[in-house]
Design a protein around this nucleic acid. Structure first.
Lengths: 359, 359
DNA sequence: CTGAAAGCGCTAACAT
DNA sequence: ATGTTAGCGCTTTCAG
C-alpha cells in the first residue's frame, strides 16, 4: 500500500506548486482554468483527499461544532421510558439493553436535530459526543480541542471545566442554570410554563391540592419546582413537599392512595417523569385524570401517544438547537461578540391528562 | 484577547520541554508525578486546551468516524410521515417545516444511534454529516479528510466518489447495493424478509393476489421488489406490476377500488411506504385489514403506533450501526483487513395490518 | 497567475 | 525522566 498522496504529490505530478494545488481546491477562481483542470485530474488519478487536520491547523479553525450530549440510559440503566401503555412489546428488539429504552425520541434528540440542521445549512460539520455518567475533564477538553464551538447540556460538565473551555472557544449551555457569564445560555420560560399549567388546573378544573414530582439531579426540574412553589403560594394554596422520581415513587404514591391523601393534580417536572408517574398510577388502579390529574413538561412525542395524552408545556426544542448553533457560529467568527442568554417562550398544550376531553 | 496558549507556552511557563507537556497529557505514566502536577497546574492556569488538529496531523489519524446521513425531508419536502392517524396535531410545532415530519424516528435514526453508542464505547468521536439532495463530491471528500472511517447510506454518494474515498479510508455502505468490493457492506436478508411476509399472508391468511408498493429511488425497495416477484412466481401466483409511492398512488388505488381490482394484500417496500399507503386507504374508505391486508418493512416506531399496527419485518437497525462502527474501527487500525459484507438476519413481526388479531 | 517558504501546534523518535 | 527536533500536510503571504 502506497503512502496516501499529499499536496506535494499532486503538485509534483501536475508540475505545479503546492500553492496552486491548494488554491485549486480552496479558491478555484484564482487558478487558470486549464491549470485547475490539470490539478483536479491528477488529484483524481492519485486518489488525493485533502487532509482536514492539516488544513484546520493551518487555518486555525475546524469548521466543526460540538454537541456534548448524554444518554440518560447510561445513568439509569434500569429505568425505562414509560410510554403510557403504548410501548409495544412486539416492536421487536435486538436484545441490546438500550434498544428498548429509546424507541421514542426525547427532549435531547429533538434539540440535537435542530442543531444538526442549522450546522449543515451553514456549512459546518458537527461532532456529537457523549459519555456515560460523570464526565472526565479530559473527555470534554479533548472534544473542545476539535471544534470551533461547543453546546452542552447542563449538569453534565463540571463548572470549572466549562469555564476553562470557554476561555478558548464559545460555549453555550442548553437550558437553565442561572449563574455566571462564562458561556451563553439558551433557556425557556420555565416559570411561565409552570404558571400556565397551574392556572389551567386551578382556574379551569378547580383543582386545589397539588404535588410536584421532581426529576433527579436535573437543573430544569429544580427551576420548575421553584416556580411551582411560588405559584402555589401566590394562589394562597397549600404547599406540599415535592415527590421525587425514584424507585420509591411507586411506594409513596401507594401510601398517598392508602391514606386518601392523593392530591388533585400531580405537576411533573417533565414528560418523561409524567409518563413514568402515569405508568405507576395505572398499576395502582388510580385513574387519570379521573382520580388525579397529571401534567408534564417538554412536549415530547411519547406524551402525545400515551393513554391519556399528557397535558404539557411545549418547548421549541429544535429551535433551541438551531439557536445554539447560530450563536456559536457567530461567536466563533467574532470573539468580540459577548455571551448572551436567550429565553424562549413556551406554549401550553392542553390534552387529556388534566381532565379536558379530546377535541 | 491574548493568543490561545500552546504546548510551548505551557512548557515555557512550567520550565519543561514541550515533549514533557505532551507526555503529561498523552502518556502520564512517563512523567514523574511532581512534574506532571506542575504541568497540569500551569496548563490549567493558562487555559490550555490541546489543539486536536495539530495532534491529529502529527499522529496521522483523527479518532473520529463519520456517518454520512441524509434527510429524506430535504428530498421530498412535501411528503409527510403518515402516522396512521396518531400524528397529533396538538403536538405543537415550531413552524419549521421539518419539525412536523420528523416526530417519529425513522430507520436512519435508529441506525445512527447504534453507530453513536459503539463509537463512544470505543473512544471515538463521531461526525454526523448530512446534505440535501444530490451530494457534491467536494462535500463528501471534505468529510472524508476529517475522519478515520466513513459509513454511508446507499444511493447518496456517486459511486466513483465513493471509490475515490475508499482508497484512503475504510468505507462501509449501509444496506444493499450488491456490486463491487470497494467498500464493506452491511445488509440484511431482504429476500428472507419478503418471503416470510408472503408466506404469512399466503399460508396463514390465504391471500392470493398481491401488489408490491415500491419506494422511489431506493435500492432496498428494488431488492425487495425482486424478492417479491421471485416469491410470487415460486408460489405459482399471478405477478402484477408494482405500484409506486408517488403523488399518484392515491389515484391508482382509487382506480383499483373503482374497478374492484384491489389485491388481497399490499406488500410495501418499507414501513414508511406502508404508513402512507394506509393513510390513503383510510381516506378512500378502504378498510385495513378488512378489505385489503398490508405489510411494511423495517420495524420503525411509527408502524407500531398506527391504527392498525403494521405487520412488518424487523431490521436490527441499531445493530447495523454498531457493526458499521466496529468494522470501520478495525479496518482503520489495520489496513490489511479486507472489506467484507455482513448480512444480518431479520425477523417477522406479526401485528394487525395483515389480518391477525391483537394478542 | 503561479511559486517559494514560513508557519500552524503537536507527537514521537532519538538522544541525554 | 526529560529534552531536542524533525516532521505531519496544508494555507497563505509575499515575490515574481
Amino acid at each position: 500500500m502506497t503512502r496516501t498522496p499529499t499536496v506535494y504529490d499532486v503538485a509534483h505530478a501536475a508540475g505545479v506548486s503546492t500553492a496552486t494545488v491548494s488554491y485549486t481546491f480552496r479558491n478555484p477562481s484564482r487558478v487558470k482554468e486549464s491549470t485547475r483542470e490539470l490539478v483536479l485530474d491528477v488529484a483524481q488519478r492519485l486518489g488525493y483527499v485533502p487532509n482536514a487536520s492539516a488544513r484546520n491547523l493551518a487555518r486555525g479553525r475546524t469548521g466543526v461544532l460540538g454537541l456534548f450530549a448524554y444518554d440518560f440510559l447510561w445513568d439509569a440503566p434500569d429505568r425505562r421510558i414509560p410510554a403510557g401503555g403504548v410501548l409495544p412489546e412486539s416492536h421487536e428488539l435486538t436484545g441490546e439493553p438500550y434498544d428498548e429504552f429509546r424507541l421514542f425520541p426525547v427532549y435531547l434528540d429533538e434539540v440535537q436535530r435542530g442543531f444538526e440542521l442549522e450546522c449543515w445549512r451553514r456549512g459546518f460539520e458537527i461532532i456529537i459526543s457523549g459519555r456515560q455518567g460523570a464526565v472526565e475533564d479530559s473527555a470534554i477538553s479533548e472534544l473542545a480541542g476539535r471544534v470551533d464551538g461547543l453546546a452542552v447540556f447542563p449538569r453534565r460538565v463540571a463548572r470549572p471545566t466549562l469555564q476553562h473551555i470557554a476561555r478558548r472557544i464559545p460555549v453555550v449551555e442548553l437550558a437553565s442554570r442561572g449563574d455566571t457569564d462564562t458561556c451563553s445560555r439558551i433557556d425557556i420560560d420555565n416559570a411561565d410554563g409552570v404558571a400556565q399549567l397551574i392556572e389551567h388546573l386551578h382556574g379551569k378544573h378547580g383543582h386545589r391540592t397539588f404535588r410536584f414530582v421532581a426529576a433527579d439531579d436535573n437543573a430544569d426540574s429544580d427551576t420548575r419546582h421553584l416556580a411551582f412553589a411560588a405559584e402555589i403560594t401566590r394562589l394562597g394554596l397549600v404547599a406540599l413537599p415535592a415527590l421525587r422520581q425514584s424507585p420509591k415513587l411507586a411506594e409513596e404514591l401507594a401510601a398517598l392512595q392508602g391514606t386518601g391523601a392523593l392530591p388533585d393534580a400531580l405537576v411533573c417536572a417533565s414528560d418523561q417523569v409524567a409518563l413514568e408517574t402515569l405508568d405507576i398510577l395505572h398499576r395502582l388502579g388510580i385513574r387519570v385524570p379521573g382520580d388525579v390529574a397529571i401534567t408534564g413538561f417538554d412536549g415530547i412525542l411519547a406524551g402525545a401517544t400515551s393513554q391519556p395524552r399528557i397535558t404539557t408545556v411545549r418547548q421549541p426544542m429544535s429551535e433551541i438547537g438551531r439557536l445554539a448553533a447560530d450563536l456559536l457560529i457567530a461567536r466563533s467568527a467574532d470573539a468580540e461578540i459577548p455571551n448572551e442568554t436567550i429565553v424562549l417562550a413556551i406554549r401550553l398544550l392542553v390534552r387529556e391528562s388534566c381532565g379536558c376531553t379530546p377535541a
